[in-house]
Structure formats: structure tokens, C-alpha cells
């Protein structure tokens, strides 16, 4: 099927916007399980989304730092015996509440979009 350059660009942008909008929720969700460092978080995201989410690795840091400045996560430098020092992130109580709220927002949004799309599909089906 022919895809115009405009169509293709728009789709890429939507994907990026979707990714950007959802990334904080995904990071909070991953961190709600255990304390992790940056690279570990990226690998966890890739694994849990079966490679569906593969952002450029560095792009998670501004989001992590923003969540940290909001108090949703806290960070500390830690290096075990003989291990490299890494910055570990941990979700806070405020972060858990934020995650809960984001989760509910997402579920509500998904329900509305699903409903809308299913009605659109029904209309398109031949009688």
C-alpha cells in the first residue's frame, strides 16, 4: 500500500508522542517493583514490552530526573564491593500514588478510545 511521506511522518510523530506521554507511567511501573539503575530500567522496559518500547536509551534520563524533581522517585549513588557506582532509582509513596492516578487515567482513556473505535468499525461493516 502506498503511504505518502506526510502520512508516514505523522505516524512517526504520533508514535513518538505516545511514547513520550506514556514513558513516565512505564518507568514508574517498572520502578514500582524494585530499585533499579538507568540501564537496568531500559532493559526491563524492553523485556516487559517484548521489545515494543525501544526508546533511545538516553531519553529516559530527563524523564527520570523530572520524576525525581517531582518527588515521585528518589535516587542514590551506590556501588557494591568491587562493583561500579551506579545511580539507583526507587519509587516513593508519592510516586506510587502518581502511578495509580496515571494508571486510572490511562484505563479511562483506553476505554473511551476503544469504545469510539469499535463503533467506527461497526459503522464501516457492510449490512
Amino acid at each position: 500500500m502506498h503511504r505518502s511521506p506526510i502520512h508516514s511522518t505523522t505516524m512517526d510523530q504520533i508514535d513518538k508522542q505516545l511514547l513520550k506521554g506514556s514513558m513516565a507511567t512505564i518507568l514508574l511501573s517498572v520502578l514500582s517493583r524494585k530499585e533499579m539503575y538507568g540501564y537496568e530500567i531500559i532493559k526491563a522496559v524492553e523485556k516487559e514490552t517484548d521489545g515494543g518500547f525501544q526508546p533511545k536509551e538516553g531519553t529516559i534520563y530527563p524523564i527520570l530526573h523530572e520524576l525525581e524533581s517531582e518527588g515521585a522517585i528518589s535516587a542514590r549513588w551506590y556501588g557494591g564491593v568491587g562493583a561500579r557506582e551506579r545511580k539507583y532509582y526507587r519509587i516513593t509513596a508519592a510516586g506510587r500514588k502518581l502511578l495509580e492516578r496515571k494508571r486510572n487515567d490511562w484505563l479511562n482513556f483506553r476505554t473511551v478510545v476503544d469504545r469510539f473505535l469499535s463503533r467506527s468499525c461497526l459503522k464501516e461493516e457492510p449490512a
Partner: peptide, 26 residues
């Protein structure tokens, strides 16, 4: 390039260490 965009030197140093740790892992 990354640290040049971060105006705070102290923060830039922290970011540098974190990115370096990330690259080491990668």
C-alpha cells in the same frame, strides 16, 4: 555535547557520571 547543554556545573557533573555509568553497562 550533552554536558554543554546543562548550565549547572554541579548537575552536569552528576549527569556525566550517570551517563558514563550507563555507557559502561551498555
Amino acid at each position: 555535547e550533552l554536558c554543554a547543554k546543562v548550565r549547572s556545573k554541579r548537575y552536569a557533573a552528576d549527569v556525566r557520571n550517570e551517563v558514563l555509568a550507563h555507557l559502561n553497562d551498555a
